[in-house]
Design a protein around this nucleic acid. Structure first.
Lengths: 344, 344
DNA sequence: CTGAAAGCGCTTACAG
DNA sequence: CTGAAAGCGCTTACAG
């Protein structure tokens, strides 16, 4: 391993001068800078980040909270995997590396201790454990922080515009001639906007048509996973067999719901129309292909990295950044003809 | 941030003594060790890894090569996402953190330079770019290395027993009464065992029944992705409409193949049976559910981490470690009755 | 424009 | 069993 001192010897300059040349700061004659850079290149010099980090207090590390227990699926999450790809690219362009925060060291080191241990400069919260007490203190731990789902006090959240999406879902169904529309939700957790906000928008739009939303048409599944969608759909359908459409709060649940409906001999969309949420990478595999709202993973990741980098640079961050969602019409929504549509 | 010197002042011992107590090495009286540990706990002391790393040359970092360009899908890969979850857990239990190696810094830093930059102690190669020249030198870069797919000179590969799986696929079909069996492959790349080995086993088993495998029944799709499976299946079927079964080299391709077959009005498995490979997390969503070979992500990850940790500890590694694959029978294979079966 | 000195927080021989 | 000294590779004021 070759160091700054080796370069110093080779070029005849001092270590601090080498450092300045390499980092492009301080005043140096163009000539010596060139000499040094060439020597560094020739020698195959690579800086040692541990030393840099120790003396500058800048580790160039971004901590990521991404859990894989229970229904959290770590890298396998259908939304967060793509988001992380993009976030990683953005952050690397800025010279940072990702470091996954963990509580698995020494009988349960906290996330914040892990950050101190590695001198992490910023934190991306993707997927914390439900109701993790530590989340409450993240906002004032002194490390810049951004979240891409959960609301955390004092932390900027970059998240899809769920409420508008909920409204759009209701609109799509209304315009296609539906009026008996079910809502298949997931647990309404205070800090997790996804399910609550989508329902809020959906209900508001529904009622803006002068109708009252019957709470019997709302079924909250007990998780975000296929089987929960299957069971939720069963309950909803058995309670309200008159529904002609269902807005499902995520694609995974929608697949479960479709499975149930197909099993009992219903046709989608002829008997029952479905709209999902996420635009899961595998949506195209199932038949019928699911109409859904695409969450813009790339945009969320990009904005999250921008906000975080700005915070690291000392600038303030907004409390929430909303990212528009796109409705993708495939083949799970039936359009009634004009007459039927006017009939409701 | 509290340091070892703070603890030294508080307890009256010297910095080296604090260090020994904290690390549990060197000879120390049980009493002073306890005093120091308590003080550290009380003060909320967290070691600084940059300093540790600089003085010990041990970063406790494992570099991971995981690309997301082209058909590589980074965190979204259906097999590698789960593998990484498990690998991450294993490696964290051993006190290491993951660090994703990148070529995105300073106009194209190499993986190896990235490793030196961060003092990475070991490398996991999950998903390199095809024919990356740098892979050739990885084996003798001096950093312990393990691969979970690609064959790399001088690097241990932990990988599914593809050849046996290929044999099993042929067996399953034969036992179900099929004899006109197609093979839908993916690019045969020299260093990438998946497609080649599965075909090799399949063909060997096929021929062990005294039949000759007609190369017209082999179709190589041009990628590992749905659309390629669709197109490959179209070619294969148009060339050999007499097939009653197809072994597809991965589930993603199988979904595309099934889509084509369903579109032209074929029934699966009544007209054509399909066996896939991987056991994609979303296999259950499509109808019919795909019979496939489950690659044991957890076991591969666990063995890879064991091998890597051992290498780091200075022990030699085997060249290849094979992990058994499990056939999962779902609903995409038709069983002919005994008479038909005897007829082939 | 360039360099000598000191420091970042920790560990490693080596004394005692 | 405990501590003084030196070093890991780099950077930051501060002189000159």
């Amino acid at each position: 391993m070759i160091t700054i001192y080796d370069l110093a010897k080779q070029t005849g300059f001092s270590a601090p001068t080498i450092s300045k040349a390499l980092n492009g700061n301080g005043k140096l004659s163009e000539e010596t800078r060139q000499t040094i850079l060439e020597a560094a290149k020739k020698a195959g010099y690579t800086a040692n980040m541990a030393a840099k980090s120790l003396s500058t207090k800048h580790s160039r590390l971004i901590g990521v909270i991404l859990e894989d227990v229970a229904m959290k699926r770590g890298f396998e999450h259908p939304l967060f995997g793509g988001l992380l790809n993009k976030f990683r690219n953005e952050i690397e362009m800025a010279g940072y590396d990702l470091l996954f925060l963990s509580k698995h060291f020494n009988e349960g080191m906290s996330y914040i201790d892990h950050c101190r241990y590695r001198d992490v400069e910023g934190i991306l919260v993707v997927n914390p454990i439900d109701d993790d007490e530590e989340m409450k203190s993240l906002g004032d731990c002194g490390i810049p922080c951004v979240s891409t789902n959960e609301f955390i006090p004092g932390v900027c959240t970059v998240v899809s515009d769920n409420e508008t999406a909920g409204k759009m879902a209701a609109q799509v169904f209304f315009e296609a001639g539906h009026s008996k529309i079910g809502f298949l939700g997931a647990p309404f957790r205070e800090n997790s906007p996804a399910a609550i906000e989508r329902f809020k928008g959906f209900k508001a739009e529904y009622e803006s048509y002068g109708l009252e939303f019957d709470e019997r048409y709302l079924e909250i599944c007990n998780a975000w996973w296929n089987q929960a969608g299957y069971e939720g759909m069963k309950k909803l359908y058995e309670r309200c067999p008159d529904i002609t459409a269902v807005f499902v709060v995520c694609d995974a649940l929608a697949f479960g719901a479709m499975k149930y409906l197909l099993e009992i001999g219903k046709s989608i969309p002829d008997d029952i129309s479905i709209i999902g949420f996420d635009d899961d990478t595998t949506v195209l595999r199932a038949a019928p292909t699911l109409s859904t709202f695409r969450q813009d993973r790339d945009r969320i990741a990009q904005l999250a990295s921008e906000v975080l980098l700005q915070e690291i640079a000392g600038m303030p961050a907004p409390q929430v950044v909303r990212v528009p969602v796109q409705y993708i019409n495939r083949s799970s929504v039936r359009r009634f003809n004009r007459v039927s549509a006017m009939a409701f």
